[in-house]
Design a binder for these strands. Structure first.
Lengths: 164, 164
DNA sequence: AGCCCTCGATTGACACGTCAATAATGTTAG
DNA sequence: CTAACATTATTGACGTGTCAATCGAGGGCT
């Protein structure tokens, strides 16, 4: 599939047509996968993936409460994004914000009973959807390969980001 | 890795911890990959991936113009999404909308010189980013595996969607 | 004291995507 | 002919994500 003609016209080659086709398939399909999962979580449990991530983090921690910036670090979100999201979740009664006694300007995020309930109701449907949409779609080997691909992409992504 | 104890408590198993870890890695990393590419396309070319997809489709077609719903089908978008996006692109002078003579209520989308220019300026940076973020991160085998994984996920996704 | 600086968190503006509702213009059944 | 319907496209409302700006409380420096 490599050209029989002269040297690469660029210092380093651009992707081949085949690589580009795979890229598009890969990025579009994974995006569709995420959308489909989000859609199911929404219709079955009235939660978004963001809601789920926040509730999961709060559920796993002692006393079901956490400082806002801790939470941001834990789930890997920008603070601004988290702040917006918490505002929406607070409106729906899933969490509660409360001033932190120890840290100046600190905000404690508390899981409410409503939020706890919503999360527990969502767990099984969510895991089932992951099985149906992801695990059942692939062979065991493909699942392992997917893990390795994700790890390689992540490593490369972090390296790229660090050198910029 | 399978439990040595009794039968599965559910009719069909929920994902194992290992499968769940891979799922999270996979979905989060692919999302981050898309974001990073979008960010580079934005800062280097002032285009979003959506802009790029629309411009690519228009560039590839005769006379650089296309019916709106054709375009939607071609790039696989919902019409409403396309309509919103075209509004934003029209504001920036990348495309132009014009009534269609032959089709009732039809809209012809035209590529403007500005849009053509923007697309041509974006092509190489975009392909370079794909190489740097995706192709360079993986071995040739992993790239092929990624293609097969995407194909398997897509097939399964379409099948699921059809039976609902 | 007064000043600057950092840190934690929020806010506003804007792009993007989805859903449901609405137009505007056919076509077809009665 | 008229009423129902289909097709094409747009719109509004809302949740979501990013960026830059802001705010408020300490902390340290002179």
């Amino acid at each position: 599939m490599t050209k029989a003609t002269a040297d690469p016209p660029n210092g380093r080659q651009l992707p081949t047509a085949e690589q580009l086709r795979i890229w598009r398939d890969f990025i579009e399909t994974t995006h569709a996968l995420g959308s489909q999962l989000a859609s199911r979580l929404q219709t079955e449990c009235s939660l978004s993936p963001g809601d789920y991530a926040v509730l999961l983090a709060l559920t796993e921690v002692q006393d079901h409460q956490m400082r806002s910036s801790e939470l941001a670090t834990h789930i890997g979100w920008e603070r601004s994004r988290l702040s917006h999201h918490l505002g929406r979740m607070e409106r729906r009664g899933l969490i509660r914000r409360q001033e932190c006694a120890t840290v100046p300007r600190g905000a404690e995020i508390h899981l409410t009973p409503t939020g706890d309930e919503a999360f527990r109701a969502a767990t099984v449907p969510h895991l089932r959807a992951i099985r149906e949409l992801f695990v059942d779609a692939l062979t065991p080997d493909q699942i392992l390969a997917a893990g390795e691909i994700a790890a390689a992409l992540r490593t490369h992504l972090d390296a790229q980001r660090r050198e910029e």
